[in-house]
Design a protein around this nucleic acid. Structure first.
Length: 392
RNA sequence: CCAGAGGUGGCGGAGUGGUCAAUCGCAGUGGACUGUAAAUCCACCGGGCUAUGCCCUACGUAGGUUCAAAUCCUACCCUCUGGA
């Protein structure tokens, strides 16, 4: 195994000690940005996704390219999500075919998506390279053109993340939204605990655990909006000795409010010397709340996706309005001010609201880049301000 | 000058007797987005109201046929394509 760089080792050692925000680079890239641009706003950590990388280009390919850091050209910390969220967002919401069973989850890739990612896998499928990792023991490649089948199990998810050479790994979990029945919630908790145990055991026995690999392994706490289930899940997982504990599921209630009570319960039920990661959190105001509770690790698509959709964050906009500035609104056509008068990013130091407005109106790609750059800078400043050691 | 084709809302373009204030796309306006199938999705988009309904003005212009016309007839104006 390739040894982590000194820089990465340091990032891993310090991970979660103070609040960090990790932009989502689900498929190995933060949309619209280069890594130079990402670094220019102070980002040192990103999140990638096991399922997406499994589908394309495949863990074997990443391994053969020297691991994910080498492959994508990023020497910062990479946290890889397990694909548990896709169990929820794609399977439970019925967007993709597939099923969840006690052994894991099976995904059938829709033709439209398969085509999009097929340019690499088409070649691979001829020699079955893509599934060699699993010894034919689970991962099946059906048709490379229309609906290949992938299976995620607690063990496979560890293997994939190890092959990718991830820094912080996440075990497979059965992710659900908050509004499910008690019965369902109990089942997902049971399954999540079982899967976590299998993942941890496998990581320790096959790879020698964190001590041997220098990587961190985190577990996911489920339990929907049932505080006692959350507590039970957190307690059980804590007994297994993970490096971090993640608040899983959907961390908003039906009204879109942060589930503060559940977050507190989980925080209290997990070891004080381990970090807590609020997966998918969140709006700036949500992050501030979660930091107050004690969470230190955050990721969400909001700053990057909203940037691409024309919603910019600005400290010039009051918190009551969620710091949101919709740059495509007609009122910014003649606005010569920067998006955020307190910001030091390229967008704010060089361009006006009027210019960005115009670039969005005509669909210039530069607009997406500038907006993404800025929103990530905003999130960096938000989180750094919370620790009191903001330094640009 | 002759022969064809056509003139529809900001634009492109459906509709060819009633269910048409008029499909759809673009542009416009606003909204949504929380472990990313998302440079996406949704709503509104002639005007005026005592507004889940009513009234007015609209399918080149002017007449006509009809209970009823963007849709049929007549004339005129304009555009395009061929031919002199």
């Amino acid at each position: 195994m390739v040894k982590s760089s000194e820089k990465r080792q340091k990032l891993i050692a310090e991970f979660g000690r103070k609040p960090v925000f990790l932009p989502d680079a689900t498929r190995g890239a933060v949309k619209a940005l280069t890594f130079d641009q990402l670094e220019s706003v102070g980002v040192q950590h990103i999140v990638s996704n096991t399922l997406h990388m499994l589908m394309s280009p495949g863990p074997d390919h990443i391994a053969s390219m020297g691991g994910i850091h080498e492959f994508i050209g990023w020497d910062g910390l990479i946290l890889t999500d397990s694909g548990g969220f896709q169990v929820f967002s794609l399977l439970h919401r019925g967007q993709w075919d597939g099923e969840i069973h006690d052994d894991g989850a099976t995904f059938v890739i829709p033709e439209a998506y398969a085509k999009k990612i097929d340019h690499v896998n088409k070649r691979k499928s001829d020699t079955s390279d893509a599934c060699s990792l699993f010894d034919g023991n689970g991962l099946t490649v059906k048709s490379p053109r229309d609906g290949r089948v992938f299976e995620l199990t607690p063990e496979k998810v560890i293997d994939i993340q190890m092959q990718m050479d991830s820094d912080v790994m996440v075990v497979l979990d059965d992710c659900r939204k908050t509004g499910i029945s008690r019965d369902e919630a109990e089942k997902t908790v049971e399954r999540t605990i079982k899967w976590a145990e299998r993942g941890k055991k496998y990581f320790d026995e096959k790879y020698g655990g964190s001590a041997e690999t220098g990587k961190l392994l985190t577990a996911v706490v489920q339990g929907a909006n049932y505080p006692d289930l959350r507590r039970m899940c957190a307690t059980e997982l804590s007994k297994m000795g993970f490096d971090g504990y993640n608040f899983g599921g959907y961390l908003l209630d039906e009204q879109g409010n942060l589930v503060v009570d559940e977050l507190k319960t989980v925080y209290d039920a997990t070891p004080a010397d381990k970090f807590n990661y609020a997966m998918g959190c969140g709006k700036p105001t949500d992050i501030i709340q979660a930091i107050e509770i004690g969470y230190t690790v955050f990721d969400t698509v909001l700053p990057t996706r909203n940037a691409r959709h024309g919603t910019l964050y600005s400290f010039d906009i009051p918190a009551e309005d969620e710091f949101k500035l919709k740059i495509k609104n007609a009122r910014f056509k003649d606005d010569n001010a920067p998006v955020d008068s307190t910001c030091d990013c390229e967008l704010c130091t060089r361009y006006s609201r009027a210019y960005l407005h115009q670039m969005f109106k005509v669909g210039e790609l530069t607009a997406l880049t500038l907006a993404t750059l800025h929103n990530l800078r905003f999130y960096q400043r938000l989180i750094e301000d919370e620790t009191g050691d903001y330094s640009p």
